[in-house]
Amino acid sequence: MIEALIFLVLTIIKIGVVVGVLLLIIAYLIWVERKVIAHMQVRLGPMRVGWHGLLQPIADGLKLIFKEDIIPARASKVVFVLAPVIATVPALMAIAVIPFGDTISIFGKSIDMVITDVNIGILFILAVTSVGVYGVILGGWSSNNKYSLLGALRSSAQMISYELSLGLSLIGVIMISQSLSLVDIVDSQAKYWFVILQPLGFLIYAISAIAETNRCPFDLPEAETELVAGFHTEYSSMKFALFFMAEYANIITVSAVAVTFFFGGWRGPYLPPVVWFLIKMALCIFFFIWLRSTYPRFRYDQLMKFGWKILLPVALLNILITGLVIILL
């Protein structure tokens, strides 16, 4: 009974800390992105609110809460209100199975630095994040706006197309580690990182992850020159903020999965594991922002052709090569 109570309290503390840190990272990620892109374009970015604009996320949040909450007259109201929730909830949930540190012991009780170690961890992440596409398509459809509908259709077609190669790119790692649990996958990288054994798999993962999160150069759903703002054209106030949060939470999730699968997770010398995990994740996220300020946007037919005709066969080839190498060794 006492055991169960301790387990419950520990879980709630862990969830509180992880969700709190996640939301803080999301808030400051927006500031980091604006700053990094500004400096890459020889501008200063936000400077007014706080030292070098450090309080900008708080100001933005307050502004969005006090904004008028518009529900268009011709929208399907229930779906319109639910869509941002459907987009945000899975995006914030995927973090549950990602290990961010080694097991530590406090007062003789060992605590895993992961909310829960499910033995099908990566399937859970793929399943939960693919629910996010419903938020996008329901949001776009219920707005009853042509731009929103077109943006939502494009976005969902893109997301489901690249989900295939995303799923296939991780199979090589699973064949080596023989487990779907993310804790086991980090453990099997004690000697070397899987990016060395699976360079092609990592490349495919990186490309499909960028496409999955609708980021530049795959940001067609928000191609503002043709679609205004894509599926969230009609959204305002906190509903818009929730879509925004979902996008950044997805970036954090795919970066965390990349670190866990290909860069040895929290493993690293000298510094504490949690610090290593955060450093590696920050570098992945920086790569996302760097891409955005460097590359122009794809054309839609190029995007779909690339996903189906190149990425999918190459991902299957990667599995075949991995399979042959495992047998020969």
Partner: peptide, 14 residues
Amino acid sequence: LPILILLLVVMGFA
């Protein structure tokens, strides 16, 4: 069970 608790927390937040 932790996933269920997390679901409730995140839904409550949204």
